[in-house]
Simulated scan of single mutants.
Amino acid sequence: MAKFITLENLTYFLGKVKGWVTGLGYQTSEQVNTAITGATAKLATKEEVTSATADMATKAWVGEQGYQTASQVESAITGKGYQTAGDVSSAISAATADMATQTWVGQQGFQNSSQVESAITAKGYDTASSVDGKVAAAKSEMQSAIDAAVSSVYEPKGSVAFASLPSLAAGIVGDVYNVTDGFTTTENFIEGAGKKYPAGTNVVCVTDGDAQKWDVLAGMVDLSGYVQTSDLEAVTNPEIDAMFD
């Protein structure tokens, strides 16, 4: 299992190293300077010189055994690539900031608005404006087809009241009448009985099997089965989020 060093671990480690070096008798540069200044302030006696010589020999021996001064230890630690408390703190801060970047978010599977838009488009869903456009195009195409059929087959016969429509017969197939008053269809209509239409509705005589019936061409169109614009509502962000749960 991989391990990492914390700021507390590093501080404790450095304290142990400094304590160990101090325990060997090594001194800081400030302590050495103080000792030298004190030594020059007085005349050394023979005994002191002898003692100093012995002390120098001892220090030389300590060095020969591989012991190092505080400065040497510090250089060795730096050379190994260990970091100070400040360096470790900066590295942790940088890593924490990186977690909030777009790369990290992307690795968790989250998507940006462009990716969500692409996913919705791939599903084939339509927006409210797209639905309105398709409905309008379908109505236009239907009307064009009706107009073309009427102009090539039907024959206008003028305006009459509903009660004055002529009797159905093979001889009036294709005749178109403008009904001047509102009416309710009977069994004589292709649409079936009970459908209400306003004044100004056009009807035509058509063949239905072996019989003739009236067929409503224009007037009030029943759009109850269509979705109204007011019934359409834009998809919300939470709904989009739910698609990816």
Rank of each mutant, 00 (worst) to 15 (best):
T207H: 02
V216C: 08
G219I: 02
V206Y: 01
D208C: 02
A211W: 09
Y226N: 08
G219P: 12
D208T: 08
C205F: 04
G209C: 12
C205N: 01
G219Y: 11
A218E: 07
L217W: 11
K213R: 15
A234F: 00
D215G: 01
A218D: 07
Y226H: 10
V216R: 12
V221T: 13
W214Y: 14
Q212D: 04
K213Q: 11
K213P: 06
V216I: 12
S230N: 12
S224K: 04
A234L: 10
M220G: 09
E233F: 04
L217N: 01
D231L: 12
D210T: 15
V227A: 13
D215M: 13
V206E: 10
L232A: 15
S224R: 10
K213L: 07
T207N: 11
D215C: 07
E233R: 10
A211I: 10
S230R: 05
A218Y: 05
M220D: 14
V206Q: 03
L232Q: 15
T229V: 09
D222V: 03
D215Y: 01
T207Q: 11
S224W: 00
K213F: 00
Q212Y: 06
V204Y: 03
S224P: 09
C205K: 00
T207E: 12
V221G: 10
L217C: 10
W214T: 00
Q228L: 15
Q228P: 01
T229A: 10
V206N: 01
T207A: 14
D215Q: 09
V221K: 14
V216P: 12
G225N: 08
G225S: 15
V204R: 06
V221P: 05
M220S: 03
E233T: 11
L232N: 15
V206A: 03
V206S: 03
G209N: 03
V204C: 10
V221S: 02
V206F: 02
K213V: 08
S230L: 00
L223F: 14
Q228V: 06
G225Y: 05
S230I: 07
V216Y: 09
L217S: 08
A218P: 02
Y226R: 13
V206P: 00
G209T: 00
D208A: 15
D231M: 13
V227W: 00
D210P: 07
L232R: 15
V221E: 06
D208M: 12
L223H: 07
W214S: 03
Q212M: 11
V227Y: 02
S224M: 02
W214V: 08
V221C: 04
W214L: 12
Q212H: 12
A218T: 12
V227N: 05
V221R: 14
S224H: 09
T207I: 05
V216M: 09
A211F: 02
S230C: 07
G209F: 11
A234R: 08
D231G: 11
T229G: 13
T229N: 06
D210M: 06
T207C: 04
A218W: 07
L217H: 07
A234S: 15
V221A: 13
L232K: 15
L223T: 14
G209Y: 00
T207W: 02
W214R: 01
V221M: 13
S224G: 14
Q212W: 04
